[in-house]
Design a protein around this nucleic acid. Sequence first.
DNA 1: ATTTATTGTGACACTTTAATGACAATTATC
DNA 2: GATAATTGTCATTAAAGTGTCACAATAAAT
Lengths: 228, 228
Amino acid sequence: MAANILIVEDEPAIQELLALNLSQAGHNPIRALSVEQAQMLMRDALPDLIILDWMLPGMSGIEFARKLKTDELTKVIPIIMLTARGEESDKIRGLEVGADDYVTKPFSPRELNARIKAVLRRRAPQMTDDPIESHGLRLDPTTHRVTGNKKTIELGPTEFKLLHYLMSNPERVHSRSQVLDRVWGDKVFVEDRTVDVHIRRLRLALEQTGHEDLIQTVRGVGYRFSAQ
Amino acid sequence: MAANILIVEDEPAIQELLALNLSQAGHNPIRALSVEQAQMLMRDALPDLIILDWMLPGMSGIEFARKLKTDELTKVIPIIMLTARGEESDKIRGLEVGADDYVTKPFSPRELNARIKAVLRRRAPQMTDDPIESHGLRLDPTTHRVTGNKKTIELGPTEFKLLHYLMSNPERVHSRSQVLDRVWGDKVFVEDRTVDVHIRRLRLALEQTGHEDLIQTVRGVGYRFSAQ
DNA sequence: ATTTATTGTGACACTTTAATGACAATTATC
DNA sequence: GATAATTGTCATTAAAGTGTCACAATAAAT
């Protein structure tokens, strides 16, 4: 939950409406009236999702989307486009340049929220607060609890986030820097090897219930959460 | 329950009907025949919920809703709109400007009450006055009394609300700001850390009956009421 | 088998975060 | 209007969590 969502919309009323909806749904809206402003805001911090109006003054939404999807840094950020009802060609071109979903104006808040959740689930599963379970190991973001075969496992904040990240993207190797980016955030300056230490602490905690080897080392590459 | 509900409806018969219904359901109806009158009434005191007819003389319901949802002070007040049956576009536009739900005329009292309850619960789940019990700790909102194994526990107003909120949403972690929003109300400007102090006072009070560790700290995140 | 690259581990200094006690200000109560 | 209760803040203390490093262990390469 609680995603940072960048709204790029030139009409103040609609922008306001969107922001209102998002914050009511527990998100953190960041507002931009133009592509230029959006780019400026993204220099500070990358959002978790972008809601992009297709009809914008200056650089168009399509161009912006294409640009975002080309850049290595931003291509993973999901984009939901806002189109006027019936603009079928927009939808097609939008999906073509890499938008993840679209919502037609006028939109219902319910629908918008559903789509946001769906997109986040697809692109950034650890942003949603669905519980994850694997082999008797269960992590529940809302209660902030981890259990192994029903037995509570105590974890520190970092270990919790780390496990959450790994479990959200199982069967996939993550390099130390990827882990640092996603778990620590991209602002911090921390040694790569620090990840090792936290992996160790995590394994230690998981030993209580014999789940420690769900966390695997891939020599020369990184770590992986795997169900054997 | 017992919410103050503002009815904005120009047809006296329907207004009367609504008011009757609401007071029978234990609420406190406040009546306005027009948006202008409603605004006047809201200068004195903000209602907990607004039932708004979409077809009004003078300023239309839509405009009024939009205005309410723009104002920082009033944007949190839930709005239920009354629409004529089948006016699909009204519903869409209504939800678009931020109404929380709608009821079509002619409406059944049962349905209306259900929706009111749902909307109110969404805003403030701890507003319901069903007694809550957990592990011998019992909180009764109607009598405003807390007992631990039948023994009365004295609590200050804030501690009571805090416990009520936590018990209404057990097992879930609440950040300090969430707690502030829900227990103190979102208008106040209070330090996050103040929550700690009240948690402390609450725990101190619960110690009399050994219930203090139902309130758990989740480091780096917040607090949780839990029965484990 | 020896060398080399990589990961695991324990210890430790350091930071961050929460608990606690005291206090002044405000509000309710008699 | 005096007294008591309640509140929010702060300074202090206590506790928990974090990042680094040195060295041990392990796997891969020669």
